[in-house]
Simulated assay, not measured.
Amino acid sequence: MAASAATNPLDIVKVRQQLRTQIPGARSNAFWTVGVEMARTEGVLSLMKGFSASMLRELIYSGLRLGSYEYFKDVLYDRSRGALSREGIGLKVAAATVASALGSAIANPTDLVKVRMQAYYPSGSPFKNMRHAFRTIWKEGTGPTASSGAGSVLGGLRALYRGVNPTTMRGIVLSVSQICSYDQAKQVLKRREIMQEGVGLHFVASMFAGLVCSITSNPVDVVKVRLMNDSGREFRGVSDCVRNIVTREGPLTFYKGFGMCWARLGLHTVLTFVVFERLRLWFGVGAL
């Protein structure tokens, strides 16, 4: 939550970049241009849109993926009966996959609300606050064609879980690359006696992890953002969204907003792991 609070302005600029559909590489889509334009036309506070939804998302998503990572490492290690090494990358990948799939799937409604609140609306945002955004999106699935009762509830849930597949996929890709690269970098640096446990080691390992997860997750993030903001149901699903992006805008579109993605995820990753390791120390829990 601390990391997301600090990087919210970078996150919203990244979302705005990924929702634009002009030719990839156009100057008007540069992250500094988008940020300055937002501050000038919508006010400086527009860079903090979706803040409440972002905090709720991190509480659920990162709470589960980081909080359960070591639990799943222990469980999978015991179940493998020695087939998976404690120091091996296979155990880390497996544990991070399960933990992140759980966290990202459950947190999808908060992620969707965050994206909708951060998107650009020419006539002004249709959402008064996070609660109003949740209600509005719920009603998208309970319109005139939806039956009352259980059918209506199911429709509302479907609206809130729009884009859950790419969200879960992105969560797995990001968390596996982020948590595993951090864990592995720490392990290698300590084993080779290059660095010892401490803030310096946490900073260096998280800087490396931030670059790795930015490269691996940006394409999935673009698809996720496009689908979540697709209130008009332009895309039939993940494959249709990918096909439309490639044919209309070209494959480089999957790295639209990469500079801001790296800036945000790099800072987010450093803050996440440095704060995480400090909290573990203060509460008497061993380092990751």
Rank of each mutant, 00 (worst) to 15 (best):
L56C: 12
Y71F: 14
G82C: 10
S104A: 14
Y69L: 08
S54D: 11
S80D: 06
V93L: 13
K49N: 12
S54I: 06
R65E: 01
F51E: 02
E58G: 14
L56N: 08
D74Q: 13
R40G: 04
L84Y: 12
T41I: 09
E58Q: 12
L76A: 13
G43K: 04
L102D: 07
T41W: 07
L45N: 08
S52F: 05
L45M: 11
D78P: 04
S52V: 13
F51P: 02
G35F: 00
A105E: 07
M38K: 00
A99E: 10
Y61D: 13
Y77D: 10
L76V: 13
S80M: 09
G35V: 05
S62I: 10
L45H: 00
L47W: 01
L84T: 07
G88K: 08
L47D: 00
Y77E: 14
L59T: 13
S85Y: 01
Y71Q: 05
I106P: 02
L76Q: 08
G88N: 11
D74A: 10
G82F: 13
L56Y: 07
L84P: 03
Y69W: 10
E58F: 07
L91E: 01
A101D: 06
R86A: 15
R65N: 13
S54H: 10
V98H: 08
A83T: 09
F51R: 04
L84Q: 08
Y61N: 10
R57M: 13
G50L: 02
D78M: 12
V44H: 06
I60A: 14
T97P: 09
S80H: 02
A99L: 09
M38L: 12
S62M: 14
A101C: 14
A99G: 11
G63I: 10
S68K: 00
A39K: 00
L45D: 05
L66P: 01
R65S: 12
S46L: 00
L66Y: 06
R65A: 07
D78N: 15
S80G: 12
A94Y: 01
G67L: 03
A101Y: 07
V98M: 07
Y71I: 15
A95G: 08
V98T: 10
S80Y: 05
K49T: 09
V75N: 05
R79V: 15
F72N: 07
Y61G: 09
G43N: 04
I60K: 02
K49H: 12
A94G: 10
V44G: 06
